[in-house]
Amino acid sequence: MNTVVLLTCTGLGLGALYFLIASGLSLIFGLMDVLNFAHGALLSIGAYAAWWAATDGGLGFWPAVPFGVLVGTAASVLLELALIRPLYARPRDQILATVGVGLALPALITGVWGSDARPFPQPAALSGTVDLLGAAVPVNRFVLIAAALAVLLLLRLFLARTRYGLIVRAGVEDRAMVTALGIDVRRAFTLVFAIGGAAASLGGALAGLYFGSVNPSQGTGLLVFAFVVVVMGGMGSVTGAAVASVGVGLVQQFANYYTAAGLGDLSVVVLLAVLLLVKPRGLTGRLA
């Protein structure tokens, strides 16, 4: 029982992390058809910015997280404006550009801070465990889950209640028609990149908490699993991404624990292939 509770909480925490990456990825793909291979690098930027602010920057953990989010968001907006926007007429080249950024940024981080994992400062309030149904669950799991829930709620409010949310939902269905109503859909592109960058870098800062350390390839490693979540949840669907995140996180944790190590990861990746093959339309989902 203890183990089940612990695995569930850890799986949910991991799922929360996936959601923070996948929600933005899903919106970006849904609206722009850009599979953002640089999204993992954005997570790493958020993670290292937060780590730097909390250690060398001397800000302490709590201000360091928003600092990381700010830097990650700025990087994401810059990426869209400088590298993605000039390539709107060349969709494949947009993906290639993100591949290049996804390679270059972690390398730059390695150049500055080295390739070894750096311990992430754990604030006292979050370093302990909570007794839940007899299991000692690390507090940071709950922090991640709460953060993911908050992001989910904010995203749903944004999509349902704001004009730009409306534009994004319409653009996921038919981007050309949105422009044919006199709307400059490129602003929505920049906006979803900002949202995606913010969520991913928040995920990065909290991943430092979850894993206890940051390393340059962390984001890229998580990216593949985020792809699984995006496809499972339906491209462009935030709620779908949330449900799929939970599913993938739990499956991975339980399978890794109860079967051979690595089998959970393997099954999730194979699941991606199977899903795409069985339901190729999973790539053209709807917003909910």
Partner: peptide, 24 residues
């Protein structure tokens, strides 16, 4: 001009397939 600026000049467009957003 890009499409949205053509529209903003004062051209309303009802496309062949109606261009209605089904989920909205």
């Amino acid at each position: 001009l890009p499409t949205h600026r053509v529209v903003r000049r004062g051209i309303g467009y009802a496309p062949e397939d109606r261009g209605v957003f089904a989920h909205l």
